[in-house]
């Protein structure tokens, strides 16, 4: 604990930010088709500064149309999933809460699978994922609120139930899907992947993502008060119902947007906030930005591995589970060490 105090919490967040920027640039340079670091910086910089191209047109097009959107999406999705995990944990004062708890992920997955089944276009896939994700959350909140007495527990139980309902829905869709085209598309999408990310995907996803991230950043300190419990927070003048609703809506919006572009990517929302809690403590003032940055770093690293480790790409969802689950076991086995 003594050693930890050498770097202030703000300093650590700043460090994460620098690490993220470096990682973004390196990730863009990384890939099967060689683009050097120098060229990467040059191409990125040419958007702002007048730089005479010293790179090939292929390099530029590959970078701007494929690598850059993919890297941006990986960072954004990681950031969003992690931030929504941290938010749900605060709202339900439950350290085990994650984006999956409200059925947000499985609802979105069901919607997307349905859109694929009906042969709807890409935009509709995103729209369906988003709609069903919100529907799922609405259902969970509605059912959870009807549970008398233990509302928080009721909400979580409702989340598990609704998730399971949507999961069986997905299984049914897989059963009736055309095994030639639809089934592989659904299955692959569900595994979670950023393969084939395009500039327009970034444009589509970034609006709901920012709409979730910005209010959460502004309200982050207030989430602390939600963790104290409803009555206590109310006596301190917090409009608990409204604040809780805003946080849930923002977190769900971000989850839905993430699932829409990347499929089911598990564990980020649970593991990364816990890592941030270990490093910076539980105060959301620091926890929220740290979760966002660490989530982006984590998913970016995972995606780099997924792209570059083997000749065939490993779906990102598999990789995050592979890293996330053991890491989480390690974290909980050290529970209670801090302070």
């Amino acid at each position: 604990m003594k050693g930890r105090q050498k770097i202030s919490d703000t300093g650590m967040i700043f460090l994460f930010l620098i690490a993220l920027i470096v990682l973004v640039i390196c990730s863009i340079a990384l890939g099967r088709y060689p683009i050097g670091l120098k060229e990467t910086v040059g191409i990125l910089g040419s958007g702002i500064f007048p730089i005479t191209p010293f790179w090939s047109a292929v390099q530029e097009s590959l970078l701007l149309n494929h690598r850059l959107p993919r890297v941006l999406l990986a960072g954004l999705v990681g950031c969003c999933l992690s931030a929504s995990g941290a938010s749900y944990q605060g709202v339900f004062h439950n350290p085990m809460a994650a984006p999956d708890i409200l059925g947000a992920s499985s609802g979105a997955a069901f919607g997307a699978a349905l859109a694929i089944l009906w042969n709807l276009g890409n935009a509709m896939i995103i729209g369906f994922a988003f709609g069903f994700s919100l529907l799922s959350v609405g259902l969970v909140v509605f059912v959870g609120n009807r549970a008398r007495g233990m509302r928080i527990l009721g909400l979580i139980l409702a989340g598990i139930m609704i998730s399971s309902l949507f999961s069986s829905g997905i299984s049914f869709i897989k059963l009736v899907a055309d095994p030639e085209n639809q089934l592989p598309a659904i299955t692959y999408w569900l595994m979670g992947s950023l393969n084939g990310a395009e500039p327009k995907d970034v444009g589509l996803a970034i609006v709901p993502m920012l709409a979730g991230l910005i209010p959460l950043l502004l309200l982050r300190w207030r989430i602390n008060l939600l963790t104290l419990g409803e009555e206590e927070a109310k006596t301190m003048g917090v409009n608990v119902g409204r604040l809780r609703m805003i946080v849930i809506l923002c977190a769900t919006l971000m989850t839905a947007a993430s699932v829409s572009v990347s499929g089911m990517i598990g564990w980020v929302g649970l593991v990364i906030p816990h890592l941030a809690r270990r490093l910076l403590g539980n105060n959301y003032n620091h926890l929220m930005p740290a979760s966002m940055l660490l989530g982006a770093i984590f998913l970016l690293l995972a995606d780099d591995l997924s792209r570059n480790l083997f000749a065939t790409e490993i779906p990102l969802g598999i990789l995050t589970s592979l890293i996330g689950a053991p890491f989480f076991l390690y974290l909980i086995s050290r529970e209670g060490e801090r302070l």
């Binding site: 602390n224 301190m236 003048g237 403590g281 302070l339």
Partner: peptide
Amino acid sequence: TPAFNYTVFDMVLMGTIP
């Protein structure tokens, strides 16, 4: 015992919210 382990200072600081 709240769900998360806040420092004593952070806990008291929450009182300033109104």
